[in-house]
Design a protein around this nucleic acid. Structure first.
Length: 752
DNA sequence: CTGCTCGGCCTTTTT
DNA sequence: GGCCGAGCAG
């Protein structure tokens, strides 16, 4: 008993009630920063200590990283228990592989990401016979994805399709599905859609899994879509011990099929449910909570909910006006550097959020220029590089010889003299024989139209892949190494004179290391597991929160995190809210929630930034401040650094005129031009820190070391005795060099 | 027939 | 700034 008491000791009454709730459905409406993750984790531990078996608990989180953290925390609170914690997608993949036989799937299926999906959609679109196609594969793929997430079959879609776009989609959707199945592939949405369908149609399986997962807990329930809801529902019929946690004000994935109604209807869907509201915020200052609350209150489609905090008032929320996007990047990085220099905060206390990924570019150069350590939290960007995608495609094709997309990606990489025309012939032969492309390549002798170089190339490719396939049981990293060697990919890069290929060579080398680490963690894991982990990784999964660096990410990726100091960039009309949302009130409300999510990540200081001008698609545009800034309470603090520099005065004045013209473009959206109050020049503003002397060293630069050889700079910060340079050497891994006298010779610059 | 280069096009957010 | 398709040389 005392053990359980210790689990509850530092909780409020509401949190305690959530943790100790027994059987039956439970809805926890948890405001931002109210400790919902803590409550859900404690609840799992509490269940375990009350005698529930670990194997009877299923917990769903939004990212793999969150899943890992929850596992660790549960393990700490209730040692020795292995609870199944995963994302919906990982759960789906695992179920599909585990029950492949019973469901009629091949367990070695490949998981296609958006890129792969779009290629297949393009192919289906071309085969559809629709001429004069006006819609991009991306757009059609997006519509199919949304349909699957809303649990709509191709047949059902066809019935409801009204406009021309929907009719196009309804023709392509079944063709695309056929191609997926032929390639023995699943897209992201299948990982939800197919298990949901199986649970719905296969009562035996449903009852089995319902009994197995007697307790189901789901985080971020406000972002659940229909397919996910089906899974939850079917797993909670005989044992309706389902506990969901969410905040309707933080629903930000409507655009990909999430439905806020699902959380709002929970009480109706699960009779006899109990609802607990957590409205006490433990994260932010009163100023931040107040500003965020006033903003979100502008949403009409909203259940009114108050957020309160006992935390101190804190500094007012700041709005900073910059001249242009470059100034913004520079200004923010400079402020962070000064905050760290003064000892007030560490780098890791800072986060910078933005609406779109494209804005990270100017930031990147500002960080490098000022020698400030940073991490852009963008997926596993490393695995998205062309060379790594190529090597991964070889591996995918080995694991699943039916994989069309991967075959086409690597069959002529390195060049084997197999061009488009030959591949078209191969594809029609394969389609006629109803065989995969790799198998067809093995029968190239039977295809009379293909001869010469192309025929030899295909035959050799097939032979090589067959040899590699016989080694499929090797540990992942050894297989990667073998692929590099046998495919000729390594040789191609090594023999190249293009200096970028030296980088690429190192990257594919790193891929071997990554596979080795993966295998070292658990020797039972296969190449399929490795590929799956990479594909299902989310943006934040690659984030290292331990390191002392500034974190840069999209507003979407920031969900669930917290930082002492938060900067939100480009809070401008057209970017936040994004212009694509402006024609639709519901979408603007989602943008407002997105802004709300970003603001409520901040614990102590919050800066909303915007620029007067911003370069966009190579063009300089005048920008007007976001309607969301106008919606903030009146006590926010306006900062205009350009007021301290007389040169900028003219630019600022000019902007006041021009932006009111630009504002006309937004007239129909109801946004009004907004002119921040004119401020007196600020004499306290410190001059910027002089730049470090140019050593030629910078991120990405190729260097020569007398012992380790050629390497690439992967981290660079500081100067003088405090300079830190991290270099990755293909053969020796990463090495850190500190100080002034570094024996590194710059041999090449990375191309811009 | 293959492979390279140039120019036109588009760019939200993500598992 | 990056990708895809068209057009041209080998």
């Amino acid at each position: 008993m005392s053990e359980s008491a210790e689990l509850l000791a530092d909780l409020t009454d509401d949190q305690k009630a959530a943790v100790t709730h027994g059987e039956g459905p439970l809805l926890i409406l948890a405001g931002a920063g109210s400790g919902k993750t803590r409550a859900i984790t404690r609840r799992v531990a509490y269940l375990l200590r009350s005698g529930v078996r670990a194997s009877n608990i299923l917990a769903i989180t939004f990212t793999n990283k969150a899943a890992g953290e929850m596992k660790t925390r549960v393990e700490k609170l209730a040692p020795g228990n292995k609870v199944w914690v995963s994302t919906f997608h990982s759960l789906g993949a695992r179920l599909l592989r585990q029950y492949a036989d019973r469901l009629g799937y091949d367990r070695n299926f490949t998981i296609y990401d958006m890129d792969d999906r779009n290629k297949l959609v393009k192919d289906a679109l071309e085969a559809s016979g629709i001429d004069n196609v006006k819609f991009s594969p991306e757009r059609i793929g997006g519509a199919i994805s949304k349909a699957k997430n809303q649990f709509i079959t191709p047949a059902a879609y066809q019935k409801t399709a009204t406009d021309f776009f929907q009719q196009t989609v309804s023709v392509v959707y079944p063709l695309y599905e056929k191609r997926l199945r032929n390639a023995n592939a699943m897209d992201f949405d299948d990982l939800l859609y197919l298990p949901a369908m199986a649970l719905k149609l296969n009562e035996e399986l449903r009852a089995e899994l319902d009994a197995r997962f007697r307790y189901v807990l789901i985080d971020e329930y406000q972002d659940t879509n229909s397919a996910q809801y089906q899974i939850v529902k079917q797993l909670s019929r005989d044992y309706p011990n389902v506990c969901v946690v969410g905040d309707p004000d933080q629903s930000i994935y409507r655009w990909r099929g999430s439905d806020i109604k699902i959380i709002l209807d929970f009480e109706r869907d699960f009779p006899q449910s109990r609802t607990i509201t957590l409205s006490q915020n433990y994260r932010s200052t009163k100023s931040i909570i107040h500003a965020a609350s006033v903003l979100i209150d502008h949403n009409k489609q909203r259940k009114k909910k108050d957020l309160v905090t006992d935390n101190p008032q804190g500094d007012p929320v700041n709005v900073i006006t910059f001249d242009n996007g470059l100034d913004e990047a520079d200004g923010v990085v400079t402020r962070i550097k000064e905050a760290v220099k003064s000892g007030k905060f560490k780098y890791r206390d800072h986060a910078i959020f933005m609406r779109i990924n494209a804005l990270t570019r100017s930031l990147e150069s500002a960080f490098v220029k000022h020698g400030v350590p940073f991490q852009i939290v963008k997926g596993l960007a490393f695995f998205e590089r062309k060379e790594n995608r190529d090597v991964l495609a070889y591996l995918r094709l080995l694991a699943n010889p039916q994989d069309t997309v991967s075959f086409l990606r690597v069959v002529n990489e390195p060049v084997r003299g197999i061009g488009k025309v030959s591949l078209d012939k191969l594809q029609s032969f394969a389609a006629g024989q109803e065989i995969g492309l790799l198998v067809a390549a093995g029968q190239v002798a039977r295809i009379t139209e293909i001869k010469g170089k192309a025929a030899t190339g295909l035959r050799d490719f097939h032979r090589m892949m067959s040899e590699l396939r016989s080694r499929l049981d090797l540990p992942p990293h050894e297989l990667v190494r073998l692929v590099l060697e046998k495919s000729g990919y390594e040789t191609m890069l090594r023999d190249s004179t293009d200096e970028e290929d030296a980088d690429r060579l190192m990257n594919v080398g790193e891929l071997v290391t990554a596979a080795k680490q993966f295998w070292d963690e658990d020797n039972s894991r296969t190449i399929t597991d490795f590929l799956e982990q990479i594909t299902l990784a989310s943006d934040v999964d690659g984030w290292d929160e331990q390191a002392d660096h500034v974190s840069v990410m999209t507003l979407h990726a920031s969900k669930g995190l917290e930082f002492p100091v938060v900067y939100v960039l480009a809070v401008e009309q057209g970017l936040l809210p994004h212009e694509r949302s402006l024609s639709n009130d519901e979408e603007v409300e989602e943008e407002r929630r997105l802004c709300f999510v970003g603001m409520t990540r901040a614990m102590k200081e919050l800066y909303l930034c915007h620029a007067r001008m911003r370069e966009f698609r190579g063009q300089l545009n005048y920008c007007i401040v976001s309607q969301f800034i106008q919606e903030l309470p009146r006590d926010v603090n306006f900062i205009d650094p350009s007021m301290s520099r007389n040169v900028a005065r003219t630019a600022a004045d000019e902007w006041r005129v021009k932006s009111s013209h630009a504002a006309k473009d937004w007239a129909d959206t109801g946004a009004r031009p907004f002119i921040p109050p004119v401020r007196k020049p600020n004499p306290d503003l410190k001059p910027t820190i002089p730049d470090a002397p140019d050593t030629g060293l910078a991120l990405g630069v190729l260097v020569q070391h007398e012992e380790f050889g050629l390497g690439t700079v992967t981290e660079y910060s500081g100067y003088g005795a405090l300079r830190r340079v991290k270099v990755r050497f293909p053969a020796h891994g990463e090495k850190l060099f500190v100080g002034d006298k570094i024996r590194l010779k710059v041999v090449g610059r990375r191309k811009a």
